[in-house]
Amino acid sequence: MVFRNSYDSDNTVFSPQGRLHQVEYALEAVRQGSAAVGLRSNTHAILLTLKRSTGELASYQQKAFKIDDHLGIAIAGLTSDARVLSNYMRNQAMSSRLLYGRPIPVNRIVSQIAEKAQLATQQYGRRPYGVGFLVIGQDQTGPHLHEFSPDGNALEYVAMSIGARSQMAKTYLEKEHDKLAECSLDELIHHGLQSLKASLQQSKTLTPLNTSIAIVGPPGPNESGVKSEGSFRILEGDNAKPYIDALGQEEQTQAQTQPTQQRDVTMQE
């Protein structure tokens, strides 16, 4: 086997520049997964994911997972690594409820998996995890969005994207990020879909089949059966359709009307 250089064969080797190549390659594994986008306002945190399908007869993958009533994740990268970590997260969340009667603070559960991931960057015989998460949740201190990455970092963002072609989504978010805090849920989802759409290849579009939307925070005008405190939920298929339709119709009429007005009209349908 030919290595790209002598300092990347395992994760116990620093390069002369003080870098860890194996860890950087694990970050590449995250970029192989399909994109996920997360955003946060003063009242809500949401995730939007792009699901892949292996063919016309195959179902679409699952990209968003519930961890606890107040907490959920979107993944990009190796799904089986995600299963190990999300199983761990569910245990941690459950133990917080059992021991303290408290929904686990979002930053803490993210740090806990980050600490696990860090160990795998420092010892021989284990590879770093090949998956990245966007984690949303609400706790004592409001709604939150965190990114977990295999290098053992867990950081809090107002908006973030991970996965394939996520740089395009990030560019959109960086442009719009200071508007997000005051957004309503529907506006936030709209920004999220715009951002996710930016990551698509030219020929592709967002459809109710390939898109899922996950939310924490009070129910929006299109939602029914959600409790007022707004626990974690995933909208797919028909439930996601109104939001995606709103996105498409707006595009066609963009030239004639203000986007915000148009969105309000279509949302009421």
Partner: peptide, 9 residues
């Protein structure tokens, strides 16, 4: 991190 344990916890 701004979180604290109240009496209920």
């Amino acid at each position: 991190d701004g979180h604290s344990l109240g009496p209920a916890q």
